[in-house]
Design a protein around this nucleic acid. Structure first.
Lengths: 145, 145
DNA sequence: TTGGATGCAAAAGATTTGCACTCCC
DNA sequence: GGGAGTGCAAATCTTTTGCATCCAA
C-alpha cells in the first residue's frame, strides 16, 4: 500500500483529488474530533481556494461509506471522527472539546455495536454512547477562579 | 397538587405564564420527542402570537433545571424529551422519528447515569445512548417499494 | 411597581444547493 | 471527452439576540 488516502478513496469509488487527499490526511490519527468548519479552516493554509462545499461533500461521503464517523454529541455542530473502532465520547459543555472514552471502563464491555443488529424491531446501523459534563481541565480552572 | 405545570414552574423559580403552561402541557406525556420548531407550530393554534423566542427560552430553562431532556440524536436539530427517567433512544435516519428504547434490553442494565459520577477524571452530568438506523416501518415500506 | 417574560424582527451559525468551470479517469 | 468534482455565492434551516412592550408577583 503506497498511499493510504488514495486507497481509501478508491475503495469507496471516489475520484482521487488533492483536496480529498488533504482532508483524509488531516483526519488520519486526528483525535480532536474536528467540525467541518475547523477542517475547512485548517486546510485553507495549504489550499487557499478550497471550498466549504468540497469539505462538506467529502466528509459526508466518507461518513456514508463508513470510513469516518459523524458524531451527534456537540449540540451546535457535527463533529467527525476517523476512528471507527469501538469507543465512546465525552463532551465538555464548558470548552466544547470532545474526548475519547477508554473502552476498558467496566460497563462498556457488554455494549458492542457489532453484536446489536436490531432493537425493538428496528435495524441498528450505529450506536453512540455520549457522556456530557465538565472536563477535568475546565473543572480545575473553575475551582481556581 | 392542583396543577402540575404550575408546580413545575414554581419549583424552578420561573414565573407562571400561559405560554409556559401550554409548553409544559404539550410536553407532558409526549413521546414524540418534538423539536422546538414542532412545539412552536403546535402551539400556534392556541396561541397565534406566541414567539419562537419564548419557546426556545422556556425549553432551555426547563432543560437546564433538569425538568426535560435535550437530546443530541437528530443531526439537524435539537429534540426534547419530558421523560427524565433512565431510558435510551433510536433515531430513524429515514423518517427522522425518535423512539424510546425499552430499558429491559439486556446490555442496558449495567449502564446507570445515577451511578456514573466521573469518567477518565471528567465530571459526568448526563449520559445519552443513541441507536441510529432504519425503523421497522420504514424498512417495511422500503422492502415493499 | 418592577423585574422577568413576551413578541417581533433581525442576526448569527451551520449546512445545503445551484451552477459554471475544472480536471480526473 | 465525459462526468464527477470544485469553487463560489446564495439560499435554507436552526438557534440566538436586542429591544420595546407587557404582565405576574
Amino acid at each position: 500500500m503506497r498511499n493510504r488516502t488514495i486507497e481509501t478513496l478508491k475503495e469507496i469509488g471516489l475520484k482521487v483529488t488533492p483536496q480529498r487527499q488533504a482532508i483524509l490526511k488531516l483526519l488520519d490519527g486526528n483525535r480532536s474530533h474536528p467540525s467541518a468548519d475547523s477542517i475547512y479552516r485548517q486546510l485553507l493554509g495549504e489550499y487557499p481556494r478550497i471550498s466549504f462545499a468540497t469539505v462538506y461533500n467529502t466528509l459526508s461521503k466518507l461518513a456514508g461509506a463508513g470510513k469516518i464517523q459523524e458524531l451527534d454529541i456537540d449540540p451546535i455542530k457535527k463533529r467527525f471522527d476517523p476512528r471507527t473502532a469501538l469507543h465512546y465520547h465525552f463532551y465538555c459543555t464548558s470548552c466544547g472539546r470532545v474526548f475519547d472514552v477508554a473502552c476498558e471502563t467496566p460497563f462498556l464491555g457488554t455494549l458492542d455495536p457489532a453484536g446489536v443488529k436490531t432493537i425493538d424491531g428496528h435495524r441498528v446501523d450505529a450506536i453512540q454512547l455520549n457522556f456530557k459534563g465538565v472536563c477535568k481541565e475546565c473543572a480545575r480552572k473553575q475551582r481556581g477562579s
